[in-house]
């Protein structure tokens, strides 16, 4: 699976510009899906199986897009000022390398700050592509870039840009490949524009009208020096989301996922994330409402160019998903 992850994280697809990543995913899953389509927003939707007996129509969602930058101004000396696509933290930018969709690469520089007390903002930053002046600059206003760097394989752990949420994409691809028998009609949605407001998942959920929704995305951890007070760590298993900044997971689904993990002897953690959200929150309020939850991959340094996950957590997330989706799902009313 590491090769798949490497391919995914080393491709570029900021929100609204997911074509390259979509093509890559399409190649990977075309032999395993019963039906494949790209919707009006650009989300890739793969169906596997049909509803049998007590099966459900289930939407799974992992987002294709990543945070990125848009060139907004090029000055006389050829320096590029930029605006952001999604939640780019200015403090994570200086010294970073970026790659435009055209293939042009550059580095992010920072103006000299007036004092050490000064916080870096986007206004202090610029991209230097090595141009001598404006005429020499190969980038035009409106061109889109993403962080650029190769994946770092640290054995049990992997660091790369856009682990958020290519790791979810990789998990869904692997799950789709491994599922043999299922009573459910499964829709694997590789959604667009998550980082700018869960926009692809919302429209896909409306179109698919699922009876159950499950996102696969990253979550923060509390296991780094002076990190947030949060009981999620790398390597202790995939996290079953209880809540995040914009969603309370369906308690019946939480109970089902916990039970499934316990029965299968898979490690898991319970996740309470105080900020941020996932595609699941858009699915939950779609149409007349959809019971929704999320399986999260614990990830350090989210929205930086070096996001880190544990490879065992990734593999266990696949095992949990394959297990859950291969069996009937009963939502126990008493859990609500």
């Amino acid at each position: 699976m590491k090769n798949l992850i490497k391919k995914l994280v080393e491709s570029i697809g900021p929100s609204g510009y997911e074509s390259d990543v979509r093509r890559l995913v399409q190649e990977e899953i075309t032999d395993f899906a019963d039906e494949l389509r790209t919707d009006a927003m650009g989300s890739l939707i793969a169906r596997k199986g049909t509803k049998k007996g007590n099966g459900m129509r289930i939407m799974l969602s992992a987002h294709l897009d990543e945070i990125g930058l848009v060139a907004s101004h090029i000055d006389e000396k050829g320096f590029i000022r930029f605006s952001t696509l999604g939640g780019v933290y200015p403090r994570n930018c200086p010294g970073g390398r970026v790659r435009f969709m055209s293939g042009v690469e550059g580095v992010i520089g920072v103006e000299r700050l007036e004092s050490s007390e000064h916080n870096i903002t986007i206004e202090h930053l610029y991209i230097d592509v090595g141009a001598a002046n404006r005429e020499d600059c190969p980038v035009k206003i409106g061109e889109v870039a993403a962080f650029h760097r190769p994946m770092l394989d640290l054995g049990n752990r992997i660091a790369a840009k856009s682990i958020d949420d290519r790791i979810g994409v990789a998990i869904l691809i692997e799950t789709l490949r491994q599922i043999k028998e299922s009573p459910h009609e499964l829709y694997f949605v590789f959604s667009v524009q998550e980082e700018v407001g869960l926009r692809g998942a919302g429209t896909a959920a409306y179109a698919l009208d699922p009876e159950l929704g499950l996102a696969v995305d990253v979550t923060l951890t509390g296991d780094t020096p002076k990190g947030p007070k949060m009981e999620v760590s790398l390597g202790k298993g995939p996290a079953i989301k209880i809540r995040d900044g914009r969603m309370l997971s369906d308690p019946r689904l939480i109970q089902h996922l916990v039970q499934a993990a316990q029965n299968a002897g898979l490690p898991y953690q319970l996740e309470i994330l105080e900020g941020g959200t996932t595609d699941a929150s858009a699915i939950q309020i779609s149409r007349a409402g959809v019971p929704a939850g999320c399986i999260s991959v614990p990830c350090r340094y989210v929205h930086s160019p070096s996001e880190m996950v544990d490879y065992n957590d990734v593999q266990n997330a696949v095992k949990l998903l394959v297990n859950v989706l291969s069996n009937p799902i009963q939502l126990d009313k008493s859990a609500a």
Binding site: M247, Q284, I285, R287, A288, G289
Partner: peptide, 16 residues
Amino acid sequence: TQEEETLGGAFTSPFE
């Protein structure tokens, strides 16, 4: 349900 968090009930019941 869920008014205090997401207006989840209000977004969905009128649809039905």
